[in-house]
Computed example of a mutant assay.
Amino acid sequence: MLSLSRAWAVMSKEFIQLTRDRLTYAMILVMPIVQLLLFGYAINSDPRSLPTAVLVQDQGVMARPVLSALTNTGYFRITVAANSQAELDRALARGDVQFAVVIPADFSRKVVRGQAAEILVEADASDPSAVGGAVAALAGLPGQALARELTGPLARTGRAPPFEVVVHRRYNPENITAFNVVPGLLGIILSMTLVMMTALGMARERERGTMEALLATPVRPLEVMVGKLTPYVLVGVIQAALILVLARLLFAVPMSGGWLALSLGLLLFIVGSLALGFLISTVSRTQLQAMQMSFFYMMPSILLSGFMFPFRGMPEWAQVIGTIIPVTHILRVARGSLLKGSGVMDSWPSLAALAAFLLAVGTLAMIRYRTTLD
């Protein structure tokens, strides 16, 4: 027969145990709040105020109203005034801007004469979802941009729009989603396996007591880290190579070059992920805690890195958090190398961020590591 007093005693014991496991208790309270904030505020599938570079070769009176109308759509934010086409290309290749706009030298003259005037808009379509809304907004630009200027004798009532917007989608002209997602999986898959594998492996040794034998030896923290992580580095390299081969064979992802930048980025990311797993293992006492902390790291890595949602569609505070996450930078390196052929010089900001993450996390892991049991 059910005894309420005994059931109450067991329930009280579980509550006490839960409060003693502070990490699990914190996860229970923090995770719903973090999910609510991320999904409610940070996720936006229709990014606006996208950084745009402009090259104005026309000195006439029609160029400035077009740029003003472009900005008024809300999708474009002019951040770079280029002096040459090469400068525009570099800005797009580095990912500094999402769009590059060229107004040719004869634009105003052709508009006034009623000839076929054009402006060129080049879009970084490596992430199709990031540019879809902005490209759609360009359709109404010719009919609105010069409405005030084309009055009186210049009025074009009943005639075609005064100019045409020619859109070039670069790096992914066919808007194939796999070209964006599959390179991004390099970072996600490596994070999920390497961080969790290392954290659980070290926590398992602690639970089984085999850590005591290791701690009794004169092995130094750096030597332990190198010895523990080196086999997993090879695992990460094999995983990365497998993903790249399958990306080419199954999804026809373009391999545009930039192999040196990609190799360096992957090496930094793999070692950094393993160092993070090592750090998690020094904080957690059980495999359950290690798994909880690994999942807590993975959620913002997937949502704030630009893997699932456009990075520039997030508010500034979310972009700051996303910039700290190493997955963000390996995604930029992978997509830049595979889709754009970006080299080390184009990818150096992300490579430097990955190196800084490795240095910081590795140092913390060695500090946290104890040569004697607590």
Results as ranks from 00 to 15, higher is better:
128 P>H: 09
130 A>L: 08
130 A>Y: 08
131 V>Y: 02
131 V>P: 02
133 G>C: 07
133 G>P: 04
133 G>E: 05
134 A>D: 11
134 A>L: 05
134 A>T: 06
134 A>G: 09
138 L>P: 05
140 G>A: 14
141 L>G: 00
141 L>V: 04
142 P>F: 02
143 G>V: 03
144 Q>E: 07
144 Q>N: 02
145 A>W: 05
146 L>Y: 04
146 L>D: 04
147 A>W: 02
147 A>E: 07
148 R>A: 08
148 R>N: 07
150 L>N: 03
151 T>L: 01
151 T>H: 02
152 G>D: 04
153 P>H: 00
153 P>V: 04
156 R>M: 11
157 T>I: 14
159 R>D: 06
159 R>A: 11
160 A>F: 05
162 P>V: 13
163 F>E: 06
164 E>L: 05
165 V>K: 01
166 V>N: 10
166 V>C: 05
166 V>I: 14
168 H>R: 15
169 R>V: 09
170 R>G: 07
172 N>T: 09
172 N>M: 08
172 N>W: 09
174 E>I: 10
175 N>K: 10
175 N>A: 15
177 T>L: 14
177 T>G: 05
178 A>P: 01
179 F>W: 15
179 F>R: 06
179 F>H: 13
180 N>G: 07
182 V>S: 00
182 V>P: 00
183 P>W: 07
184 G>W: 06
185 L>D: 06
187 G>E: 10
188 I>D: 05
188 I>M: 13
189 I>W: 02
189 I>A: 12
192 M>S: 11
193 T>W: 11
194 L>R: 03
195 V>T: 14
196 M>R: 10
197 M>G: 08
200 L>N: 07
200 L>A: 15
201 G>M: 09
202 M>D: 02
203 A>Q: 09
205 E>I: 03
205 E>D: 15
205 E>F: 05
205 E>M: 15
207 E>P: 07
208 R>A: 14
208 R>H: 14
209 G>N: 10
210 T>Q: 11
212 E>A: 15
212 E>T: 13
214 L>R: 06
215 L>A: 13
218 P>T: 10
219 V>H: 04
220 R>C: 06
222 L>R: 15
223 E>H: 13
223 E>W: 09
